[in-house]
Amino acid sequence: MKIELITIRKIQDQRGNLSVLENDILPFDFKRIYYLYDVPAGAERGGHAHIAQQEFLIALSGSFDVVLNNGEEQKTICLNKPYEGLLIHEGIWRELNNFSSGSVCLVIASAVFDEEDYIRDFNEFLRFKK
């Protein structure tokens, strides 16, 4: 499956920790950054795949699960460390669920929003993968 868990350098200090994202961590130049927060209990986000876009997800606060499917296998990754991110390459279906109270999901994307890059129906995704 075209995903990678990437550890982000953590600089520890008695005043608090600091993590920095620079171009050498991601295999793309980012074009868009957005974040999800105040997700109600039991709600799900995602539910789509991208044809070309790649994304890097980080749990800045709290935790959530990312359910990934490449058309042949499914895997669930729990993100719960602000110094670890999940790189999701193109052509991977993703669903985000099980958000803890106060969680924040940061998404760094390789492209600006383009509805034509989204596959929002799982059966259509499976046809796309064949």
Rank of each mutant, 00 (worst) to 15 (best):
N97C: 13
I58M: 11
I25Y: 03
I33N: 06
N80D: 15
Y35R: 03
I88R: 08
L18N: 01
E124F: 06
V39R: 05
R120L: 07
G91N: 08
I3H: 11
L86N: 04
C105I: 00
D24Y: 10
F99D: 05
C78V: 12
R45T: 10
R127N: 14
Q12M: 00
S61Q: 15
P40Y: 09
E84H: 10
H50Q: 13
G16N: 02
C78P: 02
F56V: 04
L86P: 03
I77G: 02
A109K: 04
R45H: 11
L68M: 08
Q74H: 08
G47D: 02
G91D: 07
Q74M: 15
C105Q: 08
N97V: 07
E73H: 14
G102I: 05
L87M: 11
I58T: 10
L26H: 03
G62P: 07
S103I: 02
S110N: 04
G16E: 06
R45Y: 11
D38H: 13
A59R: 03
I8F: 04
S63T: 09
I6N: 08
G85L: 12
I3K: 11
G16M: 01
I108T: 08
N69L: 09
A109H: 01
I11T: 00
L36Y: 03
Y118C: 06
Y34K: 09
N69M: 10
I58R: 02
W93S: 01
E116Y: 11
I77Y: 10
P40Q: 06
C105D: 01
G62F: 06
I77T: 06
V112Y: 14
A52E: 14
F128D: 12
Y118F: 11
H89C: 12
E116Q: 15
L106P: 07
N97L: 10
V66D: 12
D117C: 12
D38I: 00
Q74K: 15
G91C: 07
G62T: 04
E115I: 13
G47K: 06
D117W: 04
F122C: 07
L21N: 01
H89Y: 15
E124R: 10
I92D: 01
D13Q: 00
Q53F: 12
G102D: 07
L68P: 00
P82I: 12
F99K: 05
P27D: 08
T7V: 06
I119M: 07
S100P: 02
R15E: 02
F113T: 14
P82A: 09
Y35E: 03
Y35L: 07
K81G: 14
E115N: 14
D13L: 01
S101E: 12
I3R: 03
F122S: 07
H89S: 15
H50E: 13
R32G: 05
L5C: 09
L5W: 03
I11R: 04
I92L: 05
L60W: 00
G85P: 03
S100Q: 05
A59W: 05
V112M: 15
L57E: 14
T7K: 10
Y83S: 15
P82G: 00
S61M: 12
L18R: 01
G62R: 03
G85N: 13
I51W: 01
L60P: 06
L57K: 07
E44Q: 15
F30S: 02
A52W: 11
N98V: 01
F99N: 02
I77L: 06
G16L: 03
G91H: 08
F99M: 02
M1W: 05
I119R: 04
A111K: 12
L79P: 10
L60F: 07
V39N: 09
V67H: 13
Y83R: 09
E22T: 15
